[in-house]
Amino acid sequence: MNSCRIAIRLLVWSGLVMGVAGHGARAAESSSKPILSAEATEALARAESGVALAIAKKALWTTAASALAQAQEAAKQQDNAAVMKYAAVATEQASLGMAQVDGPLTSQH
């Protein structure tokens, strides 16, 4: 039941992400700018899946969400360096959030 819900969430989320990515790709086709580097594309994909996992785990930080938004925005501008920078922050903040909810409870003395 629960895993089914998570799966649905992931599906919807990845659909959204693909929508955004697809949008970026179309923008790239219509302009003469170079497309996103393989490295940046991979970093962005890693950030997107990290954030999706953190959502499924109910552990997403606002900082991870906004860093991913910055990375996606940079992807639209074909700014490889900015994509790499923000995607790394999003990936790290998402994984910190996931580790946090597995951590000990406070105030149990």
Binding site: L60, S66, A69
Partner: peptide, 22 residues
């Protein structure tokens, strides 16, 4: 069924707001 959608909507709205802010 409404719930995952709602969460995703909330998050994407948040992303949008964050992007505007940035």
């Amino acid at each position: 069924m409404g719930k995952p959608l709602a969460i995703v909507t909330a998050v994407s709205l948040g992303l949008l707001l964050a992007a505007t802010f940035i």
